[in-house]
Design a binder for these strands. Structure first.
Lengths: 186, 186
DNA sequence: GCAATAAAACCGTCCAGACGGTATGTTTAT
DNA sequence: ATAAACATACCGTCTGGACGGTTTTATTGC
């Protein structure tokens, strides 16, 4: 028994709530282990309500990834606007955003969710498209060997942070970040 | 109806066969889509037989990962023996083995296992342990910033190859490999 | 050597629960 | 009034794995 029908309806908010809850569960259980029942329950919505917003599980996962990509795009675009030097600009923005100066809790959650998302072949394709788009868009400024290497290193670093396999203190992280910036300029 | 009980019993071989078949199916369907029935059928063993060797699905996946890790350990050890320079020796071996000259089947298995490895918390822990062990063991020779960075870059490169997100031709790959070797010496 | 006995290595079936999705009713906003 | 935004109930399938047999191998006693 829920009281959802008593409160004011706000479809957008419910949709957002569903996405956030799904993201959390995705981090815990992985995309494969994500169940519609669990999402609905955790969001305080019935399963029917969930399926109203996202007609299928696949749609829900697509929604998750699209949201993630949109946020990342926005953050990268903002970082790039603040960088006067064209060469390696995208790489630096990518590094800066992933190292995440701001909202750590949020960052960590979205980062951790990426892996489970990538486990699904259909979602992978979407992710790949985004990568390809970025590569094409910044081919003129970020295609050098060291820029590419810096981005790969960042991916590895990010992987390590998700796995918690390479515990690093703040000083080490800072040195690494600076080294990556160096590479982006070379 | 099977004839397994007619032929000579060889538990080790059956176990190995199960692992190989499971690995192959993992490549095809992904670890999430791996079913015990499918593994048992493909290995010519009943489901009961499979569950005799691996009491649960999790155990099967553990077995799969442990097998891969053992092989990788061997390959890395061999590569390290052939490298006279101590500094960065492990990093170079890691790079060399991952770039993988030979054993394509093995590489395909690693690729298939990578995503599940990152997605499943239990498998993740196992992998993390291995990383920690290596880091500790080679702390004296491979802990420099550039060595660490090279390994991170390699991980990123590996991920890209799994996701097929950064198509690279052989020449590019070779240049990247050389650059990583350079970093391991600095 | 050789039964006898235990233990390991299987086989084949069946089931309980989980899960995605449908079908239909009920409330709320416009 | 009508459509969107939910809730409730239910179904079919799929899958892990429990279970009780059967056959082969190993060990022990004599």
């Amino acid at each position: 028994m829920s009281t959802a029908h008593k409160r004011k309806k706000d479809p957008q908010a419910v949709r957002q709530q569903l996405l956030e809850v799904a993201a959390d569960l995705c981090v815990e259980k992985g995309a494969a282990g994500l169940t519609l029942d669990a999402v609905a329950a955790a969001a305080g919505v019935s399963k029917g309500g969930l399926l109203h917003h996202f007609p299928s599980k696949a749609d829900l996962l697509f929604g998750l990834l699209d949201d993630l990509i949109a946020r990342m795009d926005a953050a990268i675009a903002a970082a790039m606007r603040a960088d006067p030097e064209p060469h390696g600009r995208f790489t630096r923005a990518y590094v800066g955003v992933t190292f995440g100066t701001g909202a750590m809790a949020e960052e960590a959650r979205w980062k951790a969710m990426t892996i489970p998302l990538l486990a699904e072949p259909d979602l992978r394709a979407r992710w790949r498209d985004w990568i390809a788009l970025q590569a094409e868009r910044h081919a003129g400024t970020d295609a050098s060997l060291d820029c590419t290497l810096a981005r790969f290193a960042l991916d590895g670093l990010w992987l390590a942070s998700v796995l918690e396999s390479h515990p690093m203190d703040a000083a080490q992280a800072e040195r690494m970040k600076e080294r990556l910036f160096d590479l982006s300029r070379g």
